[in-house]
Design a protein around this nucleic acid. Structure first.
Lengths: 161, 161
DNA sequence: CCATCTGGTTTTATAATGCAACTACACAAG
DNA sequence: CTTGTGTAGTTGCATTATAAAACCAGATGG
């Protein structure tokens, strides 16, 4: 039984996020949704992915509470896919991915877009991580601590259910 | 030919990042590396993944300049895997994934660790995105603009080479 | 009422993932 | 020098995911 090693029972929050949105298409679907796409056909055309896969991905995102389905909006008797707050919460992840690419990609000249603030139209700053007392932190300034009331799910990896 | 749709020629920086580190294990390997792992066996034991897969992942990360191999360090005639600056640059992505999980996961009580600042030992703040003139931005305050000198690689998706 | 659009499902293929077993090498003990 | 132990892989299947393309049913539209 191989079952694509699920991380949903792992105690690492990064692994848990990856289990939810760490596949090839989910983040791009959420990107499109944040950018305004709502309809099956919109996602399919803008991403260029096969419809069967889009079907599966959309359903999974809805199941996880990242998207929700709404009955219509433009009159047509169809439905559309809208982001939930959980879905909109993915935004910083997308920004982090974008900025990593902008900073380290070998061919930054092929990047077609820049993220700007709507009001001034100027590029945004890099994401910043602060301590509670307002110091700017790098990776080296941080550490991991066990969470006080951790339920210790004892590394249940690869549980496949 | 199905070929797992490569995004490396896409003009979206998010897609490009995903192409590099968007698989299930790469980010976790980088997490372990940031946390101090250096040796093949360390990665293998802490992540619990099959050795053949670790082999492939490590090689890919080295090829992409995210890890580099160094000859030794503890005398033993083996080698170790160290993060490059590009690899350390992944840190904000991991923080964003962690914080998304902390905020939206259905079972936050199963999360075992918290990220703290080393100096005070207190949890870090949420990642923050600022405009150049210092305003705190949300997704709704941002927009995408075409990059001035964009080389327009015309949506070359699924190129498989 | 025939054509077309939307939002899928089905079929069939290829590719990725995973476990387990095996190899190769270094070094140390006996 | 032979056995043992740990490291760092490779090889061989089995299972699963992903993809393209064909198909299909219910609106919409002329």
């Amino acid at each position: 039984m191989v079952k694509r090693t699920s991380f949903e029972n792992d105690d690492c929050p990064i692994a848990r996020s990856l289990d939810a949105i760490g596949d090839w298409w989910s983040l791009l679907i959420i990107r499109e949704a944040l950018f305004g796409s709502r309809r099956f056909g919109e996602f399919q055309k803008s991403l260029g992915l096969a419809k069967n896969i889009l079907t599966v991905r959309l359903r999974a995102l809805v199941d996880q509470g990242i998207l929700k389905m709404a009955p219509a909006s433009d009159g047509s008797a169809y439905q559309e896919y809208l982001l939930t707050p959980k879905g909109r919460g993915v935004f910083p992840i997308l920004v982090a991915l974008r900025q990593w690419s902008e900073e380290f990609d070998d061919h930054p000249d092929e990047i077609a877009t820049i993220l700007v603030d709507k009001e001034k139209g100027r590029p945004v700053r890099k994401l910043e991580l602060y301590s509670q007392d307002g110091r700017l932190l790098t990776a080296a300034d941080t550490a991991l601590k066990p969470r006080p009331g951790a339920k210790s799910s004892r590394k249940l990896r690869s549980i496949s259910a």
